[in-house]
Design a protein around this nucleic acid. Structure first.
Lengths: 147, 147
DNA sequence: GGTGAAATAAACTTGCA
DNA sequence: TGCAAGTTTATTTCACC
């Protein structure tokens, strides 16, 4: 993974891929004004450089039976940090977890089927420190591309 | 968008697509034990039913010069809700925004190049209500598939 | 780095169980 | 719904600039 200097064409490619990760190389090539092999090679380099970290499919969690999503903030006591991170990495319900600046704090995005499942999850988390839970309602901005 | 009853094959397809949104129909077909046309048709239906909401490419924001990411919680005064949502929807720096349960509260995931940009952003947000900002450090769990 | 053309592979279409 | 065979596109490879 080396440092890449990105030009305008790279940014256009990244824009196209953010909007539709399943776009064909040929489609992207047309959008950026290059041929398919040129685009393929640039994308391969962006992947190898670690600029592109993955291609994900977004699902409507509610349609899949996951009716409750929540944002949980937790202040973990320092000695439990390692155990907490292991727990977060293993728990299926934890969709995302970030380390926050200061005081061994973390944010978690979790998704469960029922409110009772959320209660159980929070009860487990409370072993690691004090939690603050916010139930997520509608997505005002679902997920924006960086450019 | 109608109600779909998903079987095990659908869940396997969704798993494969979550892990790699650019996987070919043929690859997915092999993973789930069907032929490519059958998988293609199922994915078409999942898209049309709204179960699949999009295909996104994930980028390493730091490599792209966005060194500061933050989670901002804001309690908007009720009369400013509409104006706030319009603002969040237009601001390039706001990657995600969720409505939270209770008191016209929202969470925002934002990304900026410099700390000074974050300061400017928070100053703008303060017009809509009281904010609490958490700087995001490492990703403990980057983004997990639901199944 | 990029193009254009040929070979390979994947995606659509259609008819049938 | 899914499969198989045939057709149409897309991807890959490579020689050349």
């Amino acid at each position: 993974m080396e440092i890449k200097s990105l030009d305008q064409t790279d940014l256009k490619i990244l824009h196209a891929l953010q909007e539709n990760a399943r776009a064909s190389f040929a489609e992207i090539a047309k959008q950026v004004g290059l041929t398919a092999p040129a685009v393929t090679e640039r994308i391969r380099k962006l992947e190898h450089a670690g600029v592109i970290t993955g291609y994900r499919t977004e699902l409507d969690l509610r349609q899949l039976g996951f009716d409750v999503q929540a944002l949980i903030l937790i202040e973990v006591t320092y000695k439990d940090e390692q155990a907490f991170m292991r727990y977060a990495g293993e728990k299926q319900e934890v969709l995302e977890c970030h380390h926050l600046l200061g005081q061994s704090a973390f944010s978690l995005k979790v998704c469960v089927k029922k409110m009772l499942d959320l209660e159980a999850l929070i009860r487990e988390l409370m072993k690691f420190g004090q939690t603050t839970t916010h139930i997520l309602l509608s997505e005002v901005v679902p997920r924006r591309s960086v450019f």
